[in-house]
Design a binder for these strands. Structure first.
Length: 204
DNA sequence: GTGATGATTTAA
DNA sequence: TAAATCATCACT
């Protein structure tokens, strides 16, 4: 008789609150190699973060630049380690990790993941099969992970959506720094970070 | 109320 | 290269 698939989760490896006790650019780099996990009713999906962008309080590309607090940006001023999810271009959503000191509006955009877990689910939700095309963009990974705006403002330190240490010992990797993608203001700032030679980033 | 804008993706 | 598509925000 077949052994039933073991129920598992990554929740015992959740990144603790002190992970966020650093400036946003440092957290953006430290998030590379970590896991983003979503425990859904359909199953667990997870990916290794391979590309991020920092959005800072004094940064013209940041939704909350200059301390601009609106109904939308309010979560960016909340506790670090919460989710900031917003609609972009009327049809996709972007997923961010709120960072920085509470009361200051900063966040890290997750731009790409390497699929780790629940790839079949990702393929269904993305209507794509190629692994390198499942999570290689901020809008794409939101679909692949089953993330919706219902998760906006929720803590990333507990299920169903959370950040975790990878299970296997992290291999050594190099980080590349470039300017950010798809913005007009603040376009020259070196605030995009990705894992060198990753096949899963949104673009070189 | 109205209009400009946008941290994207996809297909042609 | 262009179209799709709509929440958000400032207010010519």
């Amino acid at each position: 008789m077949m052994t039933p698939a073991r129920k598992f989760s990554f929740s015992h490896n959740i990144l603790p609150s002190h992970f966020y006790d650093y400036e946003t650019t440092a957290v953006a780099q430290a998030l590379l190699g970590k896991l983003l996990v979503h425990e859904t009713s359909a199953g667990i999906v997870a990916g290794r973060i391979v590309e991020t962008e920092a959005y800072l309080a004094d940064d013209p590309a940041c939704h909350a630049h200059g301390g601009k607090k609106t109904p939308r940006t309010e979560v960016m001023f909340g506790a670090p380690g919460t989710a900031y999810i917003y609609l972009i271009y009327g049809m996709h959503n972007c997923f961010n990790v709120v960072t920085g000191v509470e009361g200051v509006g900063e966040a890290v955009l997750i731009r790409a993941l390497e699929p780790v877990c629940g790839i079949e689910l990702m393929q269904v939700w993305r209507k794509q099969t190629a692994p390198h095309n499942l999570c290689s963009g901020p809008g794409k990974l939101v679909y692949a992970m089953g993330i919706t705006r219902a998760l906006n403002a929720l803590s990333l330190m507990e299920p169903p959506l959370y950040l975790a240490e990878p299970v296997a010992p992290p291999g050594k990797f190099n980080v590349v720094t470039t300017t950010r993608i798809g913005i007009s203001k603040g376009a020259d700032l070196p605030l995009r970070f990705y894992i060198k030679d990753s096949l899963f980033i949104s673009r070189k």
